[in-house]
Simulated scan of single mutants.
Amino acid sequence: MRILDICAYTWQAGGPPKIIFDHTQVALRYGHQVDILSPYSPGETPYPVPEGARLILCKRTPVISRFFREVSGELYQYLKQHIHEYDIIHCHGLWHFGTLAPFMLDNRVAKAITIHGVLDRWAYNNNNWKKSLIDRLAQKAYLRRASLVQINNTDEREDLMRYLGYQHPNVVIIPNGVKMSDFVNLPPKGTFRQKFNIPADKKLVLFMSRLNIKKGLDLLLPAFRDYVKDHPDTVLILAGSDDGYEAATRAFIEQQNLGDSIRVVGLLTGDDKKAALADADLFTLPSYSEGFSMAVLEAMASGAPCLVSDRVGFGEAIREHKAGELVDLTPESVRAGLEKTLSNDALRHQMSQNATNLLRNQYDIDIVAKRLLDAYELVVKPEA
C-alpha cells in the first residue's frame, strides 16, 4: 500500500509524531510505502523520520494560521497534485486543516481518521468556538465520509457517537503501542540526576508531557506543594515543551517558594529522556484528557511506576492489571496518591512489573501496528 499520514510532525506536537514514527517502521517492514505530510512554522523542529519513509514539510499560511494554526496552502497544493498517488490517507486529530483538505479533493482515495482523544468532553469544550465554526463548515460531514475511524478505547466510541449523533459504520478500536525494545538498554541510574544536579538522596517524581493545563498541572502543583511540606526529601521534575501553561507553572513555583523542590527542565529527548525515566522513582500524569497517552506507555516500558488519572486512555486496563495507581481529578486525590506510592517501595516495584507484562501482551507496537495495517487493507479500494 501507498500510505500518506497527515499530521503536524514536529517535536512540539506531542504524541502523534511518535505514534506515526513507530507505526511507519512496522509498515515499512511489511513492504508498504509511507509518506508524512506536515504543516510547519519557522522555529519548529521536525520529528525524526524512519529510514525509508519521506517527510514533506509545508509552510503554514501567514496571518490565517495565527487563528487556525494548521492552515497551509502548500499542503493543499501538494494534495491536489499527488492525492491520487496514494491508496490511503490517514489524518490525525480533528479540526486541523490537514484533516479537512483531503476530503475537499479526490473522493476515490480511502481516508482514515484517528480521533486522538479530542472528542472527550473536556477536550471538546476547550477552544470550542473554533471547533463549532469548523463543525458547521465541514468537519462533521467529512468525518461521516471517512472510510475508517480509528479510536483508542471504548470511551472514544461513546464520544464519537455523541459528536456525530449516530455510530459511524466503520470504527475500529486499536490502542497506541510502544516499541518495547527501545527501553531495554537505558542510561545508567544516576545519569539524569548528575546532569541536572539532583541529590541522590531525594526521591524523584517525573512529569513528562507538554506543559498544558489539560495535563493536570493545576492538580499536580498544589498536590505536590502539600506533599513536600511533610516530605522535603522529594523533588518534582517537570519535563516538556511549553504549550500555554509554563508561565503559570513558574509563577506558582515562585509564589509558593518551591524553587528547591520543583524543577522545570524543558523538553527532553533521546538519552536525556531515557535517563530521566530510568532515574524516576515515580512517573505522574494526572491528565484531564488523553486519547491514549504515549508518555504513560513509555514510562511503563522504561520500568517507571506510574501515578496517573483514569483519563490517560487505558485506565481500566491499568486498574485491572494493577499496573499503576489511579487518582481522581482533584489535588487531594493526587496528594494521597503521592503519599501512598512514594511511601511503599514494594508497591512501586510490583506496579512496574505488572505494567511491563501488560505492555508485552497488549500494547507492543508490532501487535497494534499490524492491526492497523489489516484495517487499512479492508477499506482500500482495489485499482480498476
Results as ranks from 00 to 15, higher is better:
7 C>S: 09
8 A>V: 06
9 Y>V: 04
15 G>F: 07
18 K>H: 12
23 H>I: 13
24 T>D: 10
24 T>E: 00
34 V>S: 00
34 V>P: 00
37 L>Q: 11
38 S>H: 04
38 S>C: 04
40 Y>E: 00
46 P>N: 08
51 E>P: 00
57 L>R: 09
63 V>E: 14
86 Y>R: 12
87 D>R: 07
97 F>H: 15
99 T>M: 06
109 V>K: 01
110 A>E: 05
110 A>V: 06
112 A>M: 15
120 D>W: 10
128 N>M: 13
134 I>N: 04
135 D>M: 06
139 Q>R: 02
140 K>H: 14
150 Q>M: 15
156 E>V: 00
166 Y>D: 10
169 P>Q: 03
174 I>S: 02
174 I>H: 05
175 P>F: 04
177 G>I: 05
184 V>W: 06
185 N>Q: 13
186 L>Q: 01
190 G>A: 13
201 D>L: 06
206 L>H: 05
207 F>T: 01
215 K>Q: 11
226 D>T: 05
227 Y>G: 01
231 H>M: 03
233 D>Y: 10
248 A>V: 08
262 I>Q: 00
266 G>S: 05
281 D>L: 09
289 S>Y: 07
294 M>F: 11
310 D>S: 12
313 G>I: 04
325 E>G: 02
328 D>M: 15
329 L>K: 07
329 L>T: 04
331 P>R: 07
332 E>S: 14
344 N>E: 13
345 D>H: 12
347 L>E: 09
348 R>D: 07
350 Q>G: 08
351 M>I: 07
378 L>Q: 15
383 E>G: 10
